[in-house]
Design a protein around this nucleic acid. Structure first.
Lengths: 237, 237
DNA sequence: AATTACACGTGATTC
DNA sequence: TGAATCACGTGTAAT
C-alpha cells in the first residue's frame, strides 16, 4: 500500500470555502483597522466595535470549543492511565504500546476464564458449546459435549431426539442448573460402527438445539427469573 | 477548581520566540516578494529560489511530520478497534466510553480469575495471601489462610514458628507444589480461648513469612528452576 | 539531525 | 443551535 493511498478522509464535501473567510489562528487575531488609520471617528469606532464583537463572539466560541476538547482529551488520558495501572507491566510508557498490551492482557484473561469455564460444571451467563474427542478407558472413541444455555423444559427431550437422529448413544450426562441457566456435559459414542460421528455434524446439531429460544410448545410460558441464585442443583445420571 | 487553573502545559520554557519568526500554517506559505514587486530580476529570482528552497525544505519536513503523526494515530485507532471487537458490548461508539468499558472488563476478568485462583489448590505465578474466617462444623471459629509464594526449604518451619508465636493451632494443611512454587492452605484455630485471633495480626505475620526471600541460612543455595513443570506434587496432612 | 511521541487548537460532522 | 466527537496539522520536547 502506498503512502498516499493510506489517506482516507472522512466523508465530507470538497470544502465549500466556508462562508466567513477563515480567521487565522485566532489566538492573536489581526485587527485590520486597529492602527490609527485615516477614518472618521465614528466609522472607526463602529468598525472597531463590530470587529470586537466578532472577535468576542468567535473568541468565546473557540475558547469553549478548545476547552471542551481539552476535557475530552483529559478523560481519555485518565482512562489510559487507569488502564496502565491495572496492567502488570507498568514499564511501557508509549500510548500505542500500552493499548497493545491491554489487548494482549484482555485476550489472555479471556483465554483463562474460558478455559476455567469449560472444565467447570457450573453454568455461566454466556452460551457455550464445546465438542471434544476423548479416549475411553477401553480405548473406545468417546465424545464429550458441553452445552451451556438458558434452561427450558424441553431442552433435554430436544437433546435426546437430536442424538437419536444422529444414531448416537449417551454414556453419561452431568446436568447442572443455576439460576435459570443449565450446563449439560454429555459423554456420547456411536450407536454402532456405521454412524456419523464427526465433530461438525454433532456441533451443528447441538448448536441448533442450544439456539432454540424458550418460546415454543408452551406458548405463554412464564419468564423465568434470571437473577443469581445461591442454590446449585446438580444431578448426574 | 477554576477553568484556568486546570490548564497544565508541559514543562517548557516560556516560548523564547523561536529564532526564525514562526512561519504560519505552512500549508499555504505567504511569499512576501511574489507579486511582481519593483525588484531587480536576479534579485527577485534569487529571492524566489531562496524562498522556494526554504519552502521545499519546510514543506517536506512538515509533510513527513504530519504523515508520521497520521501513522501514529492510525496505530492507536487500530488498537482501539481491536479492543472494541474484543469487548462483549460493541454498542458504545464513543472513544472514551470504549476505554471505560475496557477498564470495567479488565477489572471483571481480573476479579474472576483471582476468585478462581483462591479456590484452586494449584499455586500460581504471583504471590497471594488470603485470610478468611470460616465456621467449623461444630460452630468453632476457624481461619482459612492461603499462602502462595516461591518455595523454599524453611518455609514450613517458618510458618510453624510463626503460628506457634501467635499461639495458634493448625487443624489441617494442604500443601501443593508446582515448578518451584508452593501453595499452602492452612486451617487454623486459637490454641486456647485467650489468643490473638484477629485477621490483621495473622495476615501481617504470614505476609512477613511470605515476603522472606530464599537467601538465608543456606547462603549459597542453588537457584531453583522456575520453568513450568507438568509434575504436580500434593500432600495433605 | 532525524525520528518519535504528546498536547494543543481547529474545521468538520453529527445529534 | 450548541454540545460533543473526531481527524488533522502543528509546536515542542526527548531520544
Amino acid at each position: 500500500m502506498t503512502l498516499s493511498s493510506s489517506r482516507r478522509r472522512r466523508s465530507r464535501q470538497p470544502a465549500p470555502a466556508s462562508s466567513a473567510e477563515g480567521r487565522q489562528s485566532l489566538g492573536q487575531v489581526v485587527h485590520p483597522g486597529g492602527g490609527g488609520a485615516p477614518f472618521g471617528l465614528h466609522a472607526e469606532l463602529q468598525k472597531m466595535t463590530a470587529q470586537e464583537i466578532m472577535d468576542a463572539k468567535a473568541l468565546a466560541a473557540s475558547k469553549s470549543h478548545s476547552e471542551a476538547e481539552r476535557r475530552r482529551r483529559e478523560r481519555i488520558n485518565n482512562h489510559l492511565a487507569k488502564l496502565r495501572s491495572l496492567l502488570p507491566s507498568t514499564t511501557k510508557t508509549d500510548k500505542a504500546s500500552l493499548l497493545a498490551e491491554v489487548i494482549q492482557h484482555v485476550k489472555e484473561l479471556k483465554r483463562q476464564t474460558s478455559l476455567i469455564a469449560e472444565s467447570s460444571p457450573v453454568p455461566t451467563e454466556s452460551d457455550e458449546l464445546t465438542v471434544d474427542k476423548e479416549a475411553d478407558e477401553e480405548g473406545r472413541a468417546v465424545i464429550k459435549a458441553s452445552i451451556c444455555c438458558e434452561d427450558r423444559s424441553d431442552l433435554l427431550p430436544d437433546l435426546i431426539n437430536t442424538l437419536k437422529a444422529l444414531r448416537l448413544r449417551t454414556l453419561k450426562a452431568e446436568i447442572t442448573t443455576l439460576g435459570g441457566r443449565v450446563k449439560n456435559v454429555l459423554f456420547i459414542t456411536g450407536d454402532d460402527e456405521s454412524t456419523t460421528c464427526d465433530h461438525h455434524s454433532i456441533q451443528d446439531a447441538l448448536k441448533a438445539v442450544m439456539d432454540k429460544t424458550a418460546e415454543d410448545s408452551a406458548s405463554g410460558s412464564v419468564k423465568r427469573q434470571r437473577t443469581n441464585i445461591n442454590i446449585l442443583q446438580h444431578r448426574s445420571l
